[in-house]
Design a protein around this nucleic acid. Structure first.
Length: 590
RNA sequence: GUAGCCAUAGCUCAGCUGGAUAGAGCAUCAGAUUGCGGAUCUGGAGGUCGGAGGUUCGAAUCCUCUUGGCUACACCA
């Protein structure tokens, strides 16, 4: 809706510029010569809502920008339907105050009608998008790095859906390989039949314990590694005893990881398991060899020359004919496209694997798959700690469950300290939702591409630019609106009239509500949830200031109260809708 | 060595396809509560946007070079 307002002014001004140019005897279309008018936002709302810099026109028309702004302002002010004080020349800029009163009136209709789908766009409607993320190993629990991956994958999926895409969230569980055998082997030797039930240890942590145990044992016993390799061979040969243990321990880990997913608000439409996919791709490589896309070395391994993309060579199939990580990913992508023909496939994977994906996409396109150009590696940076990197050897890896538990405990303490146990209802549930919101918001604020520093002390703080701050705004509005429910009968005869919304922050809030849908589209276009997180913070901050400075329910006039309640109701709706895109649970009370 | 990514306030981060005085949070200093939830709000101090050139009316943003950091370049996944 804001977009339409912008377009309206842009077209109007461009038309006037053409007239001015014609009067001055300028040959041709100035808009074509100088480029379309750029629409910006003035640095400060007192200077207007829209700003049109006229530098390029000054150059083309051989005069100063100030002159053009002056002429333009004079003409526009005289136009029918344009209020004189909506035009503010400001040096080389022509600034416009838009009509937020009528904008608010149409917004109210729109938000009332759309409700929780307000902000959705159709920019991706009809598109099928597959998003692969998380992809844990089944030999240990999730850590902080996975949490960033999950938060981005989950959020991007919601954002794409909000733009009309048909989204499939997929997880590929890495449940085979030597590292899986290591924890199995250690369990066989030292486990004494321990189970999650008997030990009270969550399944993924129990398996992780034996993975650590293996590392210690390997130092004492030089045959450890060869024993693990032997176990992998037995697994591949289908040894029933090994398979049984493998199934058991995988189940423990996956059940544990799924509990973590529930806590952090992550879910998938489809799980794939590497034990089923690791054989895939071989035939495709052989086909590529026949077609002359790849070549065979003397030792009979198969390679691709990557000179075209300025890289070296890469093995695609081992000399013994077995497949590799890359081979498997090739097969998996092809299989997925056959089963569910997607318009794009997004891999949410750490930036460390940029090379792998570059090669993968190239190989697929060499194999002749046109859809290869619709594959996208959504690369994200590392999560570091204030003291440096997480290192498993130094025991500085932040465990996902531990982190979530301590966030939850802190939220609970805070509720108790504020004496709000009665109001919140289920205190454990609310504490977990606060923890989830804090965590997701913290992880989604930086642009995905960049490395980030996770400061545990900051993440658990509930003041300032944090998830709980945002949730608090939602809770305050909810609380106010339930008071309104009690008193609104006395206002039954008062209609909504947006002309009562003229205070500066009211105008700001109206503009933010109006602009929200275009940000939802932008977040999808850029694959960047932080577009939404920063919007949420801006909206919350502006609302908080407004709410602090202006009485809503205690307004002087009835019309004012009704108008403000309507505005605040819209703010709440937008907050809720945006929360949903970035994994922040809405809380009625906290 | 080669390639990719990154560099903005003491710390953590924003900054849209180049545009007005580079913005937040934390920390710090000073304020605000007869109030619809103070997990709040207001203000001060704090930046030669890693450095040097270039393009442009105009550069944190684009180009080149340079410095520093991270990552990748396995018949591991």
């Amino acid at each position: 809706m804001y977009q339409q307002v912008k377009e309206y002014w842009k077209n109007l001004l461009e038309e006037q510029l053409r007239l001015i140019a014609a009067e001055k005897g300028f040959d041709g279309d100035p808009v074509e010569t100088a480029g379309e008018l750029v629409v910006q936002t003035p640095p400060n709302p007192d200077m207007g809502d829209l700003a049109f810099p006229l530098f390029p026109y000054a150059k083309v028309m051989r005069t100063s920008p100030q002159n053009i702004v002056g002429d333009l302002a004079e003409r526009v002010k005289k136009l029918e339907g344009v209020k004189e004080d909506s035009i503010l020349p400001s040096g080389p800029y022509l600034n416009i105050f838009i009509d937020t009163v009528s904008l608010a009136a149409s917004l109210k209709k729109k938000v009332d009608a759309d409700g929780e789908t307000y902000g959705h766009t159709d920019s991706l409607s009809g598109k099928r998008v597959m998003v692969e993320f998380s992809c844990p190993n089944t030999n240990k629990p999730l850590h902080l790095g996975h949490l960033r991956n999950d938060a981005i994958g989950e959020s991007i999926s919601h954002i794409l859906k909000a733009n009309g895409a048909d989204v499939q969230k997929v997880n590929l569980i890495n449940n085979r390989g030597i590292h899986i055998c290591k924890s199995m082997l250690a369990y066989q030797k030292f486990g004494n039949g321990e189970t999650p039930e008997s030990s009270g240890i969550k399944g993924d942590h129990l398996v992780g314990k034996y993975y650590v145990r293996y590392a210690a044992w390997e130092k004492e016993d030089p045959t450890a590694l060869s024993q693990a390799q032997a176990m992998l061979r037995s697994w591949e040969e289908g040894d029933p005893e090994i398979l049984e243990l493998w199934n058991l321990m995988n189940r423990w880990t996956i059940e544990g990881i799924e509990e973590t997913y529930r806590n952090t608000g992550v879910s998938f439409d489809t799980y794939y398991y590497e034990s089923n996919t690791y054989m895939l791709g071989k035939d495709k490589i052989l086909k590529g060899l026949e077609d002359g896309v790849f070549y065979r070395e003397e030792d009979s391994s198969i390679w691709i020359d990557l000179e075209e993309i300025n890289l070296d060579k890469k093995v695609l199939l081992r000399k013994d004919g077995t497949s590799l990580y890359l081979t498997q990913d090739i097969g998996t992508a092809i299989q997925r496209h056959e089963k569910w023909p997607f318009d794009s496939l997004i891999y949410v994977v750490a930036s460390e694997q940029a090379y792998h994906f570059k090669v993968l996409f190239h190989v697929l396109s060499k194999l002749g798959y046109e859809w290869a150009e619709n594959l996208y590696h959504l690369s994200y940076g590392m999560v570091n700690l204030p003291d440096g990197k997480m290192k498993s050897r130094e025991g500085t890896v932040v465990d996902a469950d531990d982190l979530f538990a301590s966030l939850t405990a802190l939220a609970k303490e805070e509720i108790i300290a504020k004496n709000r146990e009665q109001e919140v209802g289920d205190i454990d549930d609310v504490s977990e939702k606060i923890a989830r919101g804090a965590l997701n918001y913290y992880l989604l604020q930086p642009s995905p591409m960049k490395d980030m520093v996770f400061n545990p002390a900051d993440s658990i703080s509930f003041n300032g630019n944090t998830g709980p701050y945002l949730q608090y705004m939602g809770a305050r509005i909810s609380s106010m609106l339930s008071k309104w429910e009690q008193m609104k009968d006395g206002y039954a005869d008062t209609a909504f009239d947006s002309s009562f919304l003229t205070v500066k922050d009211e105008r700001e809030l109206i503009k933010m509500i109006a602009i929200y849908p275009s940000l939802v589209a932008q977040a999808a276009e850029e694959y960047n949830p932080s577009v939404i997180t920063s919007f949420l913070y801006d909206l919350s901050r502006t609302f908080s200031r407004y709410y602090h400075d202006h009485a809503v329910l205690k307004g002087e006039k009835k019309e004012q109260v009704v108008a403000r309640v309507a505005l605040v109701t819209m703010v709440l709706q937008v907050l809720k809708n945006a929360y949903g895109l970035v994994g922040i649970p809405f809380l009625q009370s906290m």
